[in-house]
């Protein structure tokens, strides 16, 4: 037995069942939140805004909004998924089971990424009700959606293992990821920033993700698509390396 497929499937199904049990919280809340963004930014303010790079403002913010949900939901799903068993103690069963660390990661991160990717598509569908949408590169769009879901789920998994309390669980998403996302061009093009700030913004890794995702919709972004992809894959590789290290050393999992 070189791969415990039954084990991976058991964890994956368990995590998906958790989402279905809390369907309201998992799907409806983010959809409502996103709809509110469209009402406020798209309709109320957007009407007074000019087009950005030839795209109507309401449509311009769609990729950024999807990214915003993708980041927070991926992190939330994956970090909660692994933190909760640690908190209740049921992690003993995972630790004593014949599953490798890679299998545990595949199962938890796979489930979290599935949920947030599905949510991303639901938000895209919701957006279509409010603004006329176009997706120039649909396959690239789906690819980015999945890759970013997986990457941020990995990131969330790391936070879940690292966190020693529910406060710490919320700390990074609230204080780092959300600000970086808002400042990363979810609602504007960084070309709209003054020269100095534009340079600062380029140090924000989220800029590359949002820009790349926006490119798949409208064929243009703040940075070249190649750089965006490289940045996304780079972040993915870093998260993967950290997770593997955590399991290898038993960091915060095993004493």
């Amino acid at each position: 037995m070189n791969f415990n497929g039954h084990g991976v499937w058991a964890i994956y199904r368990f995590e998906m069942a958790r989402a279905l049990r809390t369907l309201w919280q998992s799907v409806v809340t983010p959809v409502i939140t996103t709809a509110l963004y469209f009402v406020v930014f798209g309709s109320a303010i957007g009407g007074r805004m000019q087009e950005v790079d030839g795209v109507a403002y309401g449509a311009f913010i769609v990729p950024g909004l999807i990214m915003l949900s993708l980041f927070t939901q991926s992190i939330f799903n994956a970090s909660f998924g692994i933190y909760f068993p640690k908190f209740t103690g049921t992690i003993y069963e995972i630790l004593s089971a014949p599953v490798s660390s890679l299998e545990v990661v595949i199962a938890y991160v796979g489930a979290a990424a599935t949920k947030s990717a599905a949510l991303g598509l639901i938000i895209l569908g919701t957006a279509a009700f409010f603004v006329p949408l176009q997706v120039l590169h649909p396959f690239m769009m789906l690819g980015m959606l999945v890759l970013i879901s997986v990457t941020f789920s990995l990131f969330g998994f790391i936070i879940g293992i690292w966190a020693g309390s529910f406060e710490q669980l919320n700390f990074i998403p609230m204080l780092i990821v959300t600000p970086l996302t808002f400042l990363g061009g979810s609602f504007y093009s960084i070309d709209m920033l003054p020269e100095g700030w534009r340079t600062v913004a380029l140090f924000n890794p989220v800029v590359y993700l949002i820009s790349g995702f926006r490119w798949t919709f409208y064929g243009q972004g703040d940075v070249a698509i190649g750089i965006s992809l490289a940045a996304t894959l780079g972040f993915f590789a870093v998260c993967l390396a950290v997770v593997m290290w955590m399991f290898k050393t038993g960091y915060r999992l095993k004493s």
């Binding site: 037995m1 415990n4 497929g5 039954h6 084990g7 499937w9 058991a10 964890i11 199904r13 368990f14 069942a17 958790r18 049990r21 209740t88 103690g89 049921t90 003993y92 069963e93 995972i94 089971a97 014949p98 599953v99």
Partner: peptide
Amino acid sequence: PQELTTDAFETVLATVTFSRGLFG
């Protein structure tokens, strides 16, 4: 284990079925 650590929201059948799968 010594401590009563169970998934509160799962059903009995689901949690036992889960364990069997987890162990491959």
